[in-house]
Amino acid sequence: MSLLEVKNLKVHFPVKQGVFSRVHAHVKAVDEVTLSVGVAETVGLVGESGCGKTTLGRAIIRLVEPTAGRVLFEGEDLTQLRGSALRSRRRKFQMVFQDPYGSLNPRMTVGQIIAEALDIHRLVDGAPARQQRVAELLRAVGLDPGHAQRYPHEFSGGQRQRIGIARALAVEPRLIVCDEPVSALDVSVQAQIINLLQDLQEQRGIAYLFIAHDLAVVEHISRRVLVMYLGKLVETADARGIIHAPKHPYTQALISAVPVVDPASKRRRIVLPGDVPSPIDPPSGCPFHPRCPVAEARCRVEVPLLREVSPGHWAACHLA
């Protein structure tokens, strides 16, 4: 059984206008998304800004209320839980945020930040045990346990991200939603954090839902990759399949747009015209058809469904 199963998840935000705040449209931030994450597995989620990947990550752990659909965590539907029942389940899944500067309270010491979750879930008894656990967590993410008394501003971006990871680890979660955990970091520090996340997975068997816009990073860390466009999944496959044999024209363009270091490689680059359309008024038919280099007449009318085009490789395209 999968650790996490998301079925037909929808998150629609109302758009209000006028004196009476009448709802006149909905932003379909996440539309009919189905996915699953296995125990100790890493699933990568890529897409451009505004495609709904962050909202999906937040809706799964109910930081954002889903509009419809089910989120099964260890077989239990999280969307039905309320109050203390939900709070107790929150121990099992945590989040690591993008901005290591904005996600740590500047008035709390590192020790307080990490121990807050321990206190909420009553995981330790007494100050000595608490201190010991904080030291242990700091060591696990490669920081000096003596730093527990310091404040976030005394640390560099990479070190802060390590603190964020230690905070997530404190409650021994089974799943961590990582929302762009390395995109705010310098290149040389990115690799340290990626390696740390991989080591922690090996030692503790944590599953990751890894949200990022950098395809190379996602390919590197994930076993399976999901590609999102305008709130919908357009392609899912194992990492190799997505990078080496993408089926959806959007994924193909996305991969070809990544600048490569090797000057000898003369790849053909597909440059997509235009911008991502507004999710308030998505195009008819296939949401990608206005920018698609191979679109046909039926793409304008018929919405393509996600179907298995080869074993384990799903794409939402009429022509795949």
Partner: peptide, 11 residues
């Protein structure tokens, strides 16, 4: 230190 696209999951 930068992951290369298509290089797979080597450390």
């Amino acid at each position: 230190s930068v992951p290369k696209l298509g290089a797979g999951a080597q450390r």
